[in-house]
Design a protein around this nucleic acid. Structure first.
Length: 291
DNA sequence: ACCGCACCCTGAGCGC
DNA sequence: TGCGCTCAGGGTGCGG
């Protein structure tokens, strides 16, 4: 579900619920793919710790703990991280309850998809990590221990530069879209914002990366930054299941130029938006204004 | 080194 | 109502 903007919004809204709070207890589901650190060990490591910082690296959230350890959180496709203090939570399915009215959502009930419950001291209430598809990840890192999945990330997408993009694209025959999705090249871009940035730049997603000009690389980098900053300003995209930790829906989906607009007129030139699979992902573009 | 693909899961929405 | 199908904002690991 979440790309950089959604993760950043989640981070900002969780800061007051987490920072300077001590983890009194941790509740988890059983061992699964989701737990890079097994639930029992995770509990042993986290209980009693205080959260000192909450940072974002690409699409990862990294919580700094008072003993120097770190907690890595990734939302995957369907992860929802939110605090009890939040007024409402639009749950993805669960028990067929669908979308509840804000009043009914107030008391969130832990279900089988709620893999983590942080019981915190202080006033903020508990923090929940729900993920029906379990593509999300949680990992505890010991103090001073490096983490390859973090260290191999490229520069944050909010500081994308045309020069860096252009140099990464040299000699690549695969689609530029695929390069943008490669987190070791640029960290934070996902399927929606890759399509939106390429539309901004006037470059088709299927173009061989090595055939993107330097000027186009500049436009793509500019597009990535603008599109993501705008999305953060408007509260992120809410296509189906994304919700803020405070339960608000993002408004960025109203501003999308191409993503999920197949057949609808391009907002710039009026031509119908095309969709096809590129880099194994559903891709949307304007056949007229993207070359 | 690079690239495409299978795979990890569950749920929604559609046509029949 | 229900079944079977396709699709989904992510990432890893494998083989060619």
């Amino acid at each position: 579900m979440p790309e950089l903007p959604e993760v950043e919004i989640t981070r900002r809204q969780l800061v007051p619920a987490l920072i300077e709070r001590r983890i009194r207890a941790l509740r988890t589901t059983g061992p699964s793919y989701f737990f890079l650190t097994p639930p029992a060990e995770l509990t042993a490591r986290l209980v009693g710790r205080r959260v000192c910082a909450l940072d974002r690296l690409g699409k990862y959230l990294v919580a700094g703990l008072d003993d120097g350890g770190r907690l890595l959180l990734h939302l995957g496709m369907t992860g929802q991280l939110f605090s009890e203090g939040a007024a409402s939570v639009a749950l993805l399915s669960s028990t067929g309850a669908g979308t509840l009215s804000p009043r009914d959502q107030r008391g969130f009930r832990v279900d089988q998809h709620t893999h983590l419950v942080f019981e915190l001291d202080g006033r903020g209430g508990d923090v929940f990590f729900r993920d029906p598809r379990k593509f999300g990840k949680v990992q505890w890192l010991a103090p001073g221990v490096a983490c390859e999945r973090i260290d191999k990330l490229g520069p944050d997408a909010l500081s994308a530069s045309g020069a860096q993009l252009f140099s990464a694209a040299r000699g690549r025959r695969a689609a530029i879209k695929g390069l943008l999705l490669d987190q070791t090249v640029l960290a934070g871009v996902g399927n929606i914002y890759a399509d939106e940035a390429l539309h901004f730049a006037g470059v088709r997603p299927g173009r061989a990366a090595g055939r993107v000009t330097r000027a186009e690389a500049d436009r793509i980098a500019e597009g990535i930054v603008r599109v993501m900053q705008r999305s953060i300003e408007t509260g992120g995209s809410s296509i189906s299941d994304y919700i803020h930790p405070d339960g608000e829906r993002g408004r960025y989906q109203d501003e999308r130029m191409v993503y999920a607009r197949e057949g609808q007129p391009c907002k710039r030139c009026g031509a119908p938006i095309a969709r096809r699979t590129i880099a194994q992902r559903s891709s949307h573009y304007c056949p007229k204004c993207q070359k």
